[in-house]
Design a protein around this nucleic acid. Structure first.
Length: 103
DNA sequence: CGAATGACCAAGC
DNA sequence: GGCTTGGCCATTC
């Protein structure tokens, strides 16, 4: 892989997130083999393809990343709710909706 | 190619 | 309880 497979893995993971579930940046980074590289996931998400459901990607607290959704973080919350994810006070119930590829 | 930036995380003060 | 520091890597200028 001439290009870093890190982003490749990130793409795959994000694409694999089922509807009604969410993942955290740190978790994705860790699953890609780089725990602590949550920032990179953010960069990949920002410069990466919009085809992926970045809306299902939230920070470690389940808080919405905000800033990348034209409608604001409330827009992301609304979209997640539409997918079946319960959002309260702009915070996803990560303890209930957090998902990982082994599930 | 070098420097700067960034949709984060956790610990420290 | 809010700001600062260090760490990670990719993309942009």
């Amino acid at each position: 892989m001439t290009d870093s497979r890190f982003k490749n893995d990130v793409y795959r993971l994000v694409a694999l997130i089922p509807t009604g579930k969410v993942m955290t940046y740190g978790q994705i980074a860790a699953l890609c083999g780089h725990p602590g590289a949550a920032r990179v996931v953010g960069q990949i998400a920002h410069f990466g393809p919009t085809d992926l459901p970045w809306q299902r990607v939230v920070n470690a607290r389940g808080g919405l990343a905000a800033g990348f959704v034209p409608d604001g973080r409330h827009g992301q919350a609304r979209m997640l709710e539409a997918e079946g994810v319960e959002v309260v006070n702009d915070n996803v119930l990560v303890t209930e909706y957090l998902w990982w590829p082994n599930s």
